[in-house]
Design a protein around this nucleic acid. Sequence first.
DNA 1: GGCGCTAATAAATACCATTCATCATCGTCG
DNA 2: CGACGATGATGAATGGTATTTATTAGCGCC
Lengths: 244, 244
Amino acid sequence: MPPRSALKRQVNRLPPERRISDIMAAAKQVFVEKGYNDALITDIALRAGVVEGSIYRFFANKRELLVKVVEHWFEEMLRDDAEQFAAVRGSWNQIRFIVYTHLTSIHRDPALSRLMFQEIRPAPDYRGSHLFELNRAYTHRLVDVVKAGIAAGELRPESSPNLVRDLVFGCIEHRTWAFLRGEGDFDPAEMADAITNLVHHGLALGSEPASPMESVVARLETATARLEAAAGIAPAKSSSSRPR
Amino acid sequence: MPPRSALKRQVNRLPPERRISDIMAAAKQVFVEKGYNDALITDIALRAGVVEGSIYRFFANKRELLVKVVEHWFEEMLRDDAEQFAAVRGSWNQIRFIVYTHLTSIHRDPALSRLMFQEIRPAPDYRGSHLFELNRAYTHRLVDVVKAGIAAGELRPESSPNLVRDLVFGCIEHRTWAFLRGEGDFDPAEMADAITNLVHHGLALGSEPASPMESVVARLETATARLEAAAGIAPAKSSSSRPR
DNA sequence: GGCGCTAATAAATACCATTCATCATCGTCG
DNA sequence: CGACGATGATGAATGGTATTTATTAGCGCC
């Protein structure tokens, strides 16, 4: 059937990298706004200025597109954090820095964080994926900090570094779920202080005389960390104020 | 038009409660085996001995069916745990008990736990749902333990009970994700000990070393040095944050 | 300036949750 | 004891959406 030979199809050829980045930018928008399930390929295609089918030339399916989008975000984030971290000294400060930057990332990109937690990490092929490796590197900094702290005699030698990692990242995630669902807000600096202190000192009242000194020092340390943050020495408000 | 009046439709009438429990049992099976997305209503209907449409007489949609299934499981679990808990004494033992039973539930029903974490909790209407209330009650036992421990002088008074809750449940979840994806196994008892100890004592080398005062002073000096280094900077904003 | 190669398109397909028109069964009442 | 109305149950239709496919258009090469 010859419906319209008069109507010429509009075709706009572009270099593949450009197409790919257009599609990924559009996909990021839509995934962020709608979440994975409610994101429509049609919508993504529309915003990228292509037709549905074209997306499948570059991405095997909707899920691969999601993974690529989150990967891209995560890589960018890692780059931003890495250099600053190198300057921080002392186990308390290092833990606090890691907690603070992680909280800040969640606070800045709740929707992407959610996609990572809810859609990516539970997938059966997560282990073995590039994102798994990226995340491993990301959380491993904390493992190294704990090991170094033990070696330096600052931390209890019987602490399992991997367990500390799960304690810290798990705590952060659990505590931010309400925010990730869109309920209320939180202050990354304040929460970072609280978490770091709790992990560092634990719950138990030590056998030492419950020195008032203890809490004075802790408060002093907290104050110092805040000062440092304000001065931009350690935990700066990373990428929002930085060129990428 | 009557296509085959010779073929009489087989109809099997049952009391609603029976139908509902049949459907829920079938749904539980299928959700557990396939996960939410890959579970087919057709499959559930088949196993329940009804036709697709019948499911919609009792459940508004697939998601409501999921919620009901998980609710049922959770309620059962709560009942089982509650009585035993009443007998445990001492904050370490109580925390250990809660950690252990939670780990055991995850170990026994990984698929249902996953559905709870991945499908139910992130939903925008989670807060306000019955499961939210159930879970609140479930985790609140730990909050009460911490409060009681503080009151009894066993735990540090500046610990935030809610933060401890997030620390513990977050840690458990983070540490069990690999298992929930089907990778490897874990020993609930062993993990419960490790988590409880870490939370209880914290990371920092506390009183053990020769002189407690020594390390307090050392930390004070470190903190002071940092303060001096950062001197001249305006204090951080509002932040009433203190070590809690 | 034609020719093939491949990007890009638009329509077709497949798969499912959900809805709907219709039928079968049961308790009740004449 | 037999019609009858209410309602449980059915299976086919609907609608939405990811994915595939057949076809067309633009670019570079000779």
